[in-house]
């Protein structure tokens, strides 16, 4: 029982961290541009596959493979904004439909290049550590540390830098921000790039935490929807907290209840939040 609780505690923290990485980008894009990128979770998959390909097929050293994977995702996200979304910023319907089709394009791209079979990714860090009587793989610990370093980085960036403040200003009061000289296009460019990079990082660790398969983006996508709705669309703090609610709930379901029901409880919470507090726990 104790072992189970510890296992939930550790795995939950890990999964929550990864979900936070994915949802942060998703919600930041909404915050600055009032559009949602449905292809966002597909970058997670793309990142995982590119990392796998560079490291295990081509044989590029690990750090470099990571950089390539992150760069590809950041580039893909940026290209999505420039090539597809920018023209229709004022028409969310078109953005919705086109980014959804883009997610499928990425899906089939992965199928065509790497096939349908599952692929195992080597752990980023080998070995295990003894912690509170539990054996934890170093890979898990590393993932946890990296995700928190990234999250802190994003929070610092948003709070301390000029560009980050511009992002928050746009999210809070679009008209006011534009009047005071913020160029929304530049902020969008940067936000989409950062969001893509975060998705890439999440993809690398997601791949090594589980395995690669062309449907691996489905669950992160649905969960990031649930997270942003529970936390409040556009709210960074809300996203962090909701990531942990959803991450722990999912881990508990998987380890202690029934693996097949994973995701269901998060969606039930989402519906309750919508009925009781429609703007989310931290929405304005």
């Amino acid at each position: 029982m104790l072992a189970l609780a510890q296992s939930i505690a550790i795995n939950g923290a890990l999964l929550s961290g990864l979900y936070a990485l994915i949802s942060l980008g998703f919600t930041m894009i909404y915050g600055v541009g009032r559009v949602l990128n449905l292809a966002h979770a597909a970058y997670v998959m793309l990142g995982g596959y590119v990392y796998f390909y560079c490291l295990q097929v081509v044989g590029i050293p690990e750090p470099l493979s990571m950089l390539i994977a992150i760069a590809v995702c950041a580039g893909a996200s940026l290209a999505t904004y420039v090539g597809l979304v920018r023209r229709y910023m004022s028409n969310p319907t078109i953005v919705f439909v086109s980014t959804f089709i883009l997610a499928l394009v990425i899906n089939y791209l992965v199928v065509l290049i790497w096939g349908m079979e599952t692929k195992n990714v080597w752990p980023v860090v080998a070995g295990v550590t003894q912690f509170m009587g539990q054996t934890i793989s170093n890979n898990l610990l590393c993932t946890l540390i990296v995700s928190w370093v990234c999250i802190s980085g994003v929070l610092l960036f948003v709070r301390k830098t000029h560009m980050g403040r511009a992002m928050r200003a746009l999210a809070m009061d679009r008209k006011g921000a534009i009047v005071s000289g913020i160029n929304p296009d530049r902020v969008n460019l940067l936000t989409w790039t950062i969001a893509g990079a975060l998705a890439g990082i999440a993809g690398i660790f997601f791949g090594s935490y589980t395995y690669l398969v062309p449907s691996m983006w489905h669950m992160p996508m649905v969960m990031s929807f649930a997270i942003v709705i529970i936390g409040g669309l556009g709210s960074i703090e809300g996203t962090l907290i909701a990531s942990h609610i959803v991450g722990y709930m999912q881990t508990t379901t998987t380890l202690a209840i029934d693996e097949r029901l994973r995701g269901v409880f998060a969606l039930i919470i989402m519906i309750i939040v919508l009925v009781v507090r429609p703007k989310g726990l931290f929405g304005k």
């Binding site: 949602l36 649905v222 709705i229 669309l233 969606l267 519906i271 429609p278």
Partner: peptide, 13 residues
């Protein structure tokens, strides 16, 4: 966009 997100989530579920 809540409606869109939720409708996709429930389709998967």
């Amino acid at each position: 966009p809540y409606f869109s997100l939720i409708s996709l989530a429930f389709l998967m579920i």
